[in-house]
Nucleic acid binder design. Structure first.
Length: 944
RNA sequence: GGCCGAGUGGCGGAAUUGGCAGACGCUCAGGAUUUAAAAUCCUGUGUCCGAUAGGACGUGCGGGUUCGAGUCCCGCCUCGGCUACCA
């Protein structure tokens, strides 16, 4: 009984916390608030992975620590529960996905509770809760009701959208259409992955190399009318507001790069009748640069308008609407075949081999507006229809891709930027068109602009084009509008109705479901199998659900569902007020608790989730529903946890060893030696391996190199660690402690079971330091006394308090644990352990290993939880040392040490160093050139 | 190909940011306790030379700055993550 028994203690305190609602958070914060959030998990059937508790333990330590420091802490947990695996399971077993989802949630909850996290479980939510997605739908309707005012740079109610006169003149339907075109949520044709053999539409991650992941059937990309969210309207704000937020530079950069803002110019090239070019150009000088182009014009986007004189050909994307119009009779067939082929290729395939470029000549020419030069127009799939204008002017001398293409097809390369003499650039080759140079330089071969610096040229030519009406400044983003619908069952239904006419055909009028009629719940289905049409499974619902009648008008419900990202875009707001039925969050509570002060999660969500959530937040902000510009003030990404270190080597057919340096992997994934013979990988145990220099080799044969590395945990590799097992064998406190002790929170680190045993050993020692483990019943160790702590004990204690406090504040949990270990190493050697010192230590340990801490706290005399005990304060006066040891160096190498008074003066320190016996010896006969004295640190003699 | 991060003992990792490299833990070895084992406790554990005392070398590699570099600068190498023709 008195041995440390985590199983008993952990169950006891988990029950205590639950029964006493120890971590229930008040509706409104009292005093300083702290909102600490974990990225909520997808409740997969596999249960928790050891990667999950890494971040969760980090946030839990922070929360328990800050509660003891008196803050009002909000620390919730929930589930991102819509997702494909549940739907696949539903199809296979013909059970509603909700069933398996709820089972998995129950399992996750059990596992999370088993780890002793101090969540306020009364706030737990799942994105699949009808009461939750009611408000997800409500926010969608808000997006549907919002247009983006470019002048004010904010989202406004659609009712305030100015309607142009010519539109309102066309009548109500035209006005409705105009509004629909401007909403943040709008319908557009987008390509989906249609797999005819499976009779369903597939998500991108279900498509591998143009074939279905399941069954390996061909997948074709077909256009389908789908919901889009106008996130690009917020691109600049999403980029600029990163400045005010405490995230790592790495993540900020990732987001900036994803948004990918580029500033350049749109330029019009004439593609009409040759003779009319002059008229076109003079006409443009009058009309200016038009919003919409006619089919005598090809519009391109470029970031390098200073290279216009170097444009030796044009490229349009295969899907460009001008292809048909441009292609000459002779090239008709070739171009058609090329475009057809491109349509079967996914974006992935197109970009797979980015070295070799393909394309075909259309037979047509465009006229360069700066010099009237005739430029051939090609179709090539290295130009994407979805970026810029889907057409480019190609400047092979100064663009890597154009250069490759021009080389491939023998197109002229004219240098128009002189790089000058610089490192790594062969100027002669660039000028001769034999090397591509994409930096800034001085203009050449550019008529009247020769001699201009790139930056000046850009500015000048933009002004000239503007005046001519042939060009204008333009900004583009890599970020595209967000494709927001999925052809799936297990997602939030859109609260949208399509009006039908008397013949049940859509009139084109769409409306939102009235707020009073929310939520739109998922209909029950006979089965969840795909129905074989490129249309969502909700189309199989009963007519009752599918065709509502309102005010005598018949409608068809939208049958797409929202993507998994939807629910995770705003869950952090719902936690603040999880059961509110009148409002997605009470405004006063929102104001009191927001923003999230610390958000911890995996780097896999560094871009999309965070970008999407920030976008929704900004829309909510513009419409006055939240008070902060950004939702997540501080973001930390935990590192990945890899499997245990593995040693491997190869064996040939004769079972002879083959070193890893002699083997490579072929296209089929088989391992081969240089001569082509196949070898098989063999796993080795640690004792078969030894280190030689930088590499590992076989202990029996040191000429054979062994591979030593840790791999990502995966089912197929069989190196997944299950938290249940760890808790069973070592206890939750050991798991928590080990996850934190492995290394810095943000680092990638390999799992080592022996390390778990190590921290268990530490908790055992903590236990024995305070508990008499040989007694029959639970009793204090007889070395714990109610005595005044002496100076030595206080010094160790306060040193520990200081270090643990600072490290915990900085999320340096690994070193905080090391300091606690030092404390325990010291006091287990002491025959007298003051009770007050033990109590303070238990409080320091509590955020890290809360169960054992509560048990010891109780044993040391407390009647209730330590969760709200004040955090120990350290007193600097106990830390002052009277004497310190100072190293003495000669030319930077430590030669001796002396013990001196801590407050010794610089001169005295130097004198003391010089008087040191050993230094006398070493310095004899050499000339002291210089002495460096750093008080409290060191003395360094520079000698000749 | 691009971007980001990281290379320190047999392993995971420390190092007040330019000031005693290797804290803490694991592993391994030796010892104590035990009839024995487990558990526990103690000692040692970067490499090389040396019985010892001690000495030399050491933070991926090559240079540099400095009295002094794991830390700063220049040039490489290796590994990991993300990303993929964005004109």
């Amino acid at each position: 009984m008195p041995r440390y028994n985590p199983g008993r203690i952990e169950a006891k305190w988990q029950t205590y916390w639950e029964e006493n609602q120890t971590f229930k958070t008040s509706e409104m914060p009292a005093g300083e608030k702290l909102y600490v959030l974990d990225m909520f998990p997808y409740p997969s059937g596999n249960g928790l992975h050891v990667g999950h508790p890494e971040g969760y333990t980090a946030t839990d330590i922070t929360c328990r620590f800050e509660r003891m420091r008196g803050k009002s802490v909000l620390h919730p947990m929930g589930y991102d529960a819509f997702g494909l695996p549940a739907e696949e399971h539903a199809i296979k077993t013909n059970t509603p996905p909700r069933e398996s989802t709820e089972k998995n949630i129950a399992n996750f909850t059990r596992q999370l509770k088993m780890l002793g996290f101090s969540y306020d479980w009364s706030r737990c939510l799942a994105t699949t809760d009808v009461g939750y997605f009611k408000w997800t739908q409500w926010i969608f309707l808000l997006l549907f009701d919002t247009w983006f005012d470019i002048e004010q740079n904010k989202g406004r109610p659609i009712s305030e959208l100015p309607i142009p006169e010519d539109v309102s003149a066309e009548g109500e339907l035209a006005v409705a259409k105009y509004r629909d075109q401007h909403r943040l949520a709008y319908l557009d044709d987008a390509l989906v992955n249609w797999c005819a053999d499976l009779g369903t539409v597939l998500a991108n991650e279900e498509v591998i190399d143009g074939r279905s992941e399941r069954g390996n059937y061909p997948v074709k990309r077909i256009p389908l009318r789908q919901w889009m969210l106008r996130i690009t309207a917020y691109a600049d704000r999403l980029e600029n507001d990163l400045e005010g937020v405490n995230w790592s530079d790495g993540i900020k950069k990732l987001q900036r790069d994803w948004i990918g803002r580029s500033a350049g110019a749109e330029v019009d090239f004439y593609i009409g009748e040759q003779d009319a070019y002059h008229d076109w150009k003079t006409g443009r000088a009058v009309t200016g640069f038009p919003d919409q182009i006619k089919n005598d014009t090809l519009r391109v986007y470029t970031t390098r308008p200073d290279t216009l004189y170097g444009a030796t050909y044009m490229v349009i994307a295969p899907e460009h609407p001008a292809v048909e119009n441009l292609v000459t009779a002779g090239q008709q067939e070739e171009v058609k075949a090329y475009c057809e082929k491109a349509s079967f290729k996914s974006d992935r395939e197109r970009t797979e081999d980015s070295k070799s470029k393909t394309g075909v000549f259309t037979g047509a020419y465009a006229i360069n507006p700066v010099n009237g030069a005739k430029v051939p127009i090609w179709v090539a799939d290295y130009v994407l229809i979805s970026y810029g204008t889907g057409a480019i002017m190609a400047v092979p001398a100064h663009d890597e891709r154009d250069y490759q293409f021009a080389k491939e097809y023998g197109i002229d390369i004219i240098a128009v930027v002189d790089p000058g003499e610089r490192k790594g650039i062969d100027r002669g080759a660039v000028l001769a068109g034999q090397q591509c140079f994409h930096g800034a330089g001085v203009a050449i071969n550019s008529g009247e602009y020769d001699g201009l610096q790139t930056a000046d040229f850009k500015k000048t030519i933009r002004e000239v084009l503007e005046v001519q009406g042939t060009g204008t400044s333009a900004v583009n983003y890599k970020l595209r509008d967000w494709l927001f619908s999925r052809q799936r069952f297990w997602g939030e239904p859109f609260p949208i109705l399509h009006e039908l006419d008397d013949e049940d055909n859509p009139t084109g009028i769409i409306r939102g479901v009235d707020e009073a009629d929310l939520p739109v719940d998922l209909p029950p289905l006979e089965d969840y199998k795909p129905h074989g049409r490129p249309e969502p499974p909700l189309a199989k619902a009963d007519d009752d659900w599918l065709y509502p009648v309102i005010d005598g008008k018949r409608y068809r419900r939208e049958t797409n569902t929202m993507p998994q990202w939807a629910g995770s875009c705003w869950y952090y707001l719902r936690y603040i007020d999880p059961t509110n039925e009148d409002c997605f969050v009470n405004p006063e509570k929102e104001k009191a608790w927001m923003p999230v002060d610390l958000y911890i999660g995996g780097a896999e969500h560094a871009v999309l989730h965070l970008l999407y959530a920030r976008f929704w937040h900004k829309v909510l902000y513009d419409r006055g529903h939240v008070t902060t510009v950004e939702p997540f003030q501080r973001l930390v990404n935990q590192g990945m946890i890899l499997g245990e270190m593995e040693f491997s080597v190869y064996q040939d057919a004769a079972k002879d060893w083959v070193g890893v340096d002699k083997v490579s992997r072929d296209d089929e994934g088989r391992y081969r030696q240089e001569d082509g013979t196949e070898v098989l990988p063999v796993k080795l145990t640690e004792e078969k391996v030894t280190k030689q220099g930088d590499t590992f080799v076989l202990a029996d044969d040191e000429s054979i190199r062994v591979d030593a590395r840790s791999f990502k945990m995966s089912k197929s590799r069989g190196n997944v660690i299950n938290p249940d097992e760890i808790v069973e064998n070592y206890g939750a406190d050991s798991l928590r402690l080990y996850e934190m002790f492995m290394g810095p929170l943000t680092a990638t680190k390999p799992w080592a079971m022996s390390g778990v045993n190590g921290v268990k050993g530490f908790l055992d020692r903590v236990w024995r330091m305070i508990v008499n483990d040989r007694a029959e019943t639970l009793a204090l160790n007889e070395m714990v006394f109610d005595i005044e702590a002496d100076a030595d004990a206080l010094k160790i204690l306060h040193k520990t308090i200081k270090a643990v406090t600072k490290d915990t504040e900085n999320l340096d949990f690994n070193t905080a644990i090391a300091r606690m270990m030092e404390f325990v190493n010291h006091f287990t050697k002491q025959q007298e352990r003051p009770r007050s010192v033990m109590q303070s230590f238990v409080l320091l340990l509590a955020p890290y290993a809360p169960h054992i801490a509560e048990e010891l706290w109780e044993l040391l005399g407390a009647e209730e939880t330590l969760a709200y005990e004040p955090w120990p304060e350290f007193d600097e006066s106990f830390l002052i040392e009277s004497t310190i040891e100072i190293p003495i160096q000669i030319k930077g190498k430590v030669k001796s040490r002396i013990s001196v008074a801590a407050d010794i003066s610089k001169d005295d320190l130097q004198q003391a160093a010089q008087n040191d016996e050993k230094m006398q010896e070493l310095l004899a006969g050499s000339e002291i050139v210089k002495v460096i004295v750093v008080p409290g640190r060191l003395v360094n003699f520079v000698t000749k």
